[in-house]
Write a protein that binds this DNA or RNA. Structure first.
Lengths: 204, 204
DNA sequence: TTTATTCGATACAGATCGGTATCGTTTGGA
DNA sequence: TCCAAACGATACCGATCTGTATCGAATAAA
């Protein structure tokens, strides 16, 4: 394995174990055993365990948001449908047998101090996701895109929290139905091509 | 302190520290230091740390659900308003400066194995809360009380998850507005006193 | 007042934690 | 081909973890 491959492999392994057991419960010794790497090697790539956690979260942050963007954009071009398509993407995540809750929520839950770097990294991810929802809400010409985005976000968080314990993907579908109903009642400025404002959108 | 007082005091202290630092990050030594109790005393009341966690969760489970019931029932007698009043109760919880996320979600997040007793205790709490929502939805004569209850539940979970990171209580108010809007569109069987079915409920 | 129980204090056991030091081997680039 | 860097393996460090053992003092009921 080349140097960059080892680093990636370590991040993959760490993320998998963090998701499976949590952050405190996952020891360095377990990570290197699963990754089949010497302890010295790990500490040559990451100064501390916290650095490893931060690197893992940053990687997943970019991966997740890129994957959601790609999924949504190739799924539909209608701006309102794109907001709803985020729940389809969410459903694929919750459908994973290995899903054990949002790793960023768990990270924040195990590092509750607001000044903790891990907490701040998790918070940053949530802000970026919210910004994407806002971008979609803006493109859909909703009257209050910020509020719409926070509503979509709240539904996402709710679905993930419920699925964390029930271990089923249904909450994603339910959240999508709720979002569809809420969005249908929202005012939108008419588009340049004379689309109806506030028309009822169908939830796929 | 009498024996029962010590036990209660230990549970109080443990719950406070679990909420502040998490479960793994809170050591037995810290708990006994904060509770000003000898280690032998703690282990005379609880066999293991896991037993302490379970006892703490069970206590909070009953406390929380009783408090919500009491809050809701004395707040209004209208069944639909009672469903919405659960969000007012939630707001009081999120307004606490010490709120760092739902302790049951955190417990499940740190004990992710579905067979783990701590996970199961957290799951049980969530089921009982959901059952209460279902009870309220049934009393409000909604056509699909089970679905209504899971929707209310999803909004609660979403508000708590968002508030865990943003550290503000606004998500509770937003969730209430969303719930009010969703419930207003739901069909209800007319009550015996000839109340309007499906009338619009105002969100306080 | 006696007696059994519970308490606090402390020392300690054994395991595990994150992290370092050492050293021989492998490997990739100049 | 040579050399520096990165590798694996392993022993080790001090700290911390959960949990136990010991023992004298406090306490409460009979």
């Amino acid at each position: 394995m080349r140097r960059s491959e080892i680093r990636d492999h370590l991040l993959d392994t760490a993320l998998r174990l963090f998701n499976q057991h949590g952050y405190h419960a996952t020891g360095i010794d377990l990570i290197i055993a699963e990754a089949r790497v010497a302890k010295t090697t790990l500490y040559r790539h990451f100064e501390t365990k916290e650095d490893l956690i931060l690197a893992a979260l940053e990687r997943r942050d970019e991966e997740d948001r890129n994957a959601m963007r790609a999924f949504v954009e190739q799924h539909t071009s209608d701006p309102v449908e794109r907001l709803l398509a985020t729940f389809d993407f969410l459903e694929t995540a919750l459908s994973d047998k290995q899903f054990r809750g949002c790793i960023f929520v768990s990270a924040a839950g195990e590092h509750k101090d607001g000044a903790n770097p891990v907490f701040r990294a998790a918070l940053m991810h949530k802000r970026l996701v919210l910004a994407y929802f806002e971008e979609l809400a803006h493109a859909a010409r909703f009257a209050g895109p910020k509020r719409i985005a926070t509503e979509i976000n709240l539904l996402h968080e709710g679905a993930m929290a419920v699925a964390q314990m029930s271990r089923i993907a249904e909450p994603a579908r339910q959240a999508k139905r709720m979002a569809g109903q809420l969005l249908a009642a929202e005012e939108r400025s008419s588009s340049v091509r004379g689309e109806d404002a506030g028309r009822r959108t169908h939830a796929s």
